[in-house]
């Protein structure tokens, strides 16, 4: 197991570098510059800017320097937000996105597992059909439609919740505890799709397990239906969900990009889009690297968790 973890950790580093390199290559190959304006710049000014940011050097020097700095954890200054380093922006924005993502994640897991299991246990009941229809809707309704609709109903019509803002309730460092009134709608919007996926995965996983011979054995032992489900079925039934939680994080990251925009939340997603549109290379690379590391490490954790749940897996 330890060897597996070390091996995987060793793979993560080149993968992060690969992702950064792809992003870097895209930035370099793309037309346009971060300093370009509508009117164009005087040649002297442009030359000065290029010199200042080292853009006059050959590409491999630039690449080498960038990668070296990134590996030391230094992403440099943002091109757009001139007085802030990328690390400062990450430090500011990451807790916001993390709070949002984590809330959505837990919400999706709780609701998805609950409804998925119930649907499987009461197969073909109204509860089953209801949950699955809701899940299908969750999969079919884009979050940028769901978000505004929630705002329309709960903020603009019923006036229950404030429309679009972010506020720390208790501030700790650059993060803290968010105000649940502001968090609720974005979290629900973000969670909808994953709740739906997890519910469907749980249901099908449980149905498959409940058909297994060892469940029949457990019943033949005289265990009650509850004991059968909790002790024997649940473990195998949630395996597909466990393996989904890895990719789910990557999806959630993408989801936050939209949700943050819908609800005007100052998270990483918003910075990321703006960085891409402004060709703010350091910030773009910084966020990409941060997320890539996060996702890859999380995937490793999921694999480890999997091995703990399923004793047949040996790494």
């Amino acid at each position: 197991m330890l060897r597996f973890i070390i091996r995987r950790l060793l793979v993560i580093l080149p993968m992060v570098l690969l992702v950064i390199t792809i992003a870097y290559a895209l930035i370099k190959l793309a037309p346009g510059n971060f300093y370009a304006t509508e009117r164009g710049l005087p040649e002297a000014v442009e030359r000065n800017i290029r010199q200042k940011y080292g853009l006059d050097k050959s590409w491999y020097v630039q690449y080498g320097k960038t990668m070296w700095n990134i590996m030391r954890g230094d992403f440099g200054f943002s091109r757009k937000y001139q007085d802030q380093t990328v690390n400062e922006i990450l430090w500011q924005a990451a807790p916001v996105s993390a709070t949002l993502g984590l809330t959505a994640y837990l919400l999706a897991l709780t609701l998805g597992l609950t409804f998925g299991t119930l649907a499987a246990l009461r197969q073909n009941s109204a509860l089953d059909y209801g949950s699955m229809a809701a899940a299908m809707l969750g999969i079919s309704l884009p979050n940028f439609v769901l978000g505004p609709l929630l705002v329309l109903v709960f903020a603009l019509t019923l006036f229950w919740l404030p429309p679009a803002r972010w506020e720390w309730w208790v501030k700790i460092g650059s993060g803290g505890i968010p105000n649940p009134r502001f968090l609720l709608m974005p979290a629900v919007t973000l969670a909808a799709l994953y709740t739906a996926y997890i519910a469907r995965l749980t249901r099908s996983g449980m149905l498959e397990v409940l058909r297994k011979d060892y469940i029949r054995t457990a019943r033949a032992k005289g265990l009650s239906e509850r004991q059968v489900v909790i002790r024997h079925a649940l473990r195998g039934g949630i395996l597909p969900v466990v393996s989904f939680t890895g990719p789910a994080l990557a999806f959630i990251v993408a989801g936050t990009v939209v949700v943050e925009r819908v609800f005007a939340i100052p998270g990483l997603g918003n910075y990321f889009i703006n960085a891409a549109l402004n060709r703010d290379a350091p910030l773009l690379l910084g966020i990409t690297a941060f997320v890539a590391i996060l996702v890859l490490v999380f995937n490793l954790l999921v694999d480890i968790a999997y091995a703990f749940i399923d004793p047949r897996i040996r790494y």
């Binding site: 011979d213 060892y214 054995t217 033949a220 005289g222 009650s224 002790r231 195998g236 399923d310 004793p311």
Partner: peptide
């Protein structure tokens, strides 16, 4: 009924490969 199952009437099934819980 549950007090009879496993206690007074026990069963052995066909396929021992799948009849035991692989996670336990």
């Amino acid at each position: 009924m549950r007090k009879i199952r496993g206690k007074r009437i026990a069963m052995i099934f066909q396929d021992p490969m799948t009849s035991l819980n692989p996670f336990m």
